[in-house]
């Protein structure tokens, strides 16, 4: 799978945030989006997820054996966790796994337990999500990545409110995903230790990756 963005111009509220950015990302590659506040990291991720149509340019995906749209091939983990406080951790995850995969056959129990385990939440599976701390909620949101398979991960500040051990868990998950041929794009302020990741520094002058 090859993700290509050409000559992207994105604007929000009539203001051009990203002007003429091109990207190219293939299997197993990771891309870090860095830059000061307000330089368009989130805007770019939202455009890649298909929420924001680009003003100019195009985003396309080249994939031999799959004609699904980009929005259906990506995991989007934004600033907000998308977690319902009245459901338990495992219920939240089970819903997203069934919904994102589009099957409710209910045979994903092992996969859910495995996904929770990957982010160190196994002991909290039956706790209502409203009682989880900010970092635990964040890990629950990230465990969506492991519960349903999607080739492209779009992560917006994935390490916000995570402790050092959890950041390691995230980096392990990202490495495993890339070894599997997946793509990862992460917007971040803090240095993230993804191995040989490309980096695009957003700002007044964008450079092509």
């Amino acid at each position: 799978m090859l993700l290509i963005a050409e000559n992207l111009v994105l604007s929000r509220g009539g203001r051009t945030v990203i002007d003429g950015l091109s990207l190219r990302l293939s299997n197993g590659e990771a891309l870090l989006l860095t830059g000061a506040n307000g330089t368009g990291k989130t805007t770019l991720l939202r455009a890649l997820a298909g929420f924001l149509p680009p003003a100019v340019g195009e985003i396309r995906i080249e994939n031999e054996n799959d004609d699904r749209e980009l929005g259906e091939l990506c995991h989007f983990v934004g600033h907000l966790d998308g977690i319902k406080p009245h459901l338990t951790a495992v219920e939240n995850l089970a819903f997203w796994a069934a919904y994102l995969d589009g099957d409710s056959s209910g045979n994903g129990g092992d996969r859910l337990a495995c996904a929770l385990n990957k982010f160190g939440l196994a002991a909290l599976a039956d706790v209502p999500a409203g009682y989880l701390s900010a970092g635990q909620k964040r890990r629950l949101a990230l465990s969506r990545l492991a519960a349903a398979h999607r080739p492209l991960w779009l992560l917006d500040e994935p390490t916000a409110s995570l402790d050092a051990a959890s950041v390691t868990l995230l980096i392990d998950a990202v490495n495993a995903h890339r070894a599997d041929g997946g793509l990862v794009i992460a917007a971040t302020h803090l240095p993230l230790a993804f191995e040989n990741a490309k980096e695009v520094r957003l700002g007044p002058k964008e450079k092509a990756a």
Partner: peptide, 14 residues
Amino acid sequence: YEDGSLDVLATGPL
């Protein structure tokens, strides 16, 4: 919308 679920719902197969 407030808790971000709508974004994830929009990336689903529906």
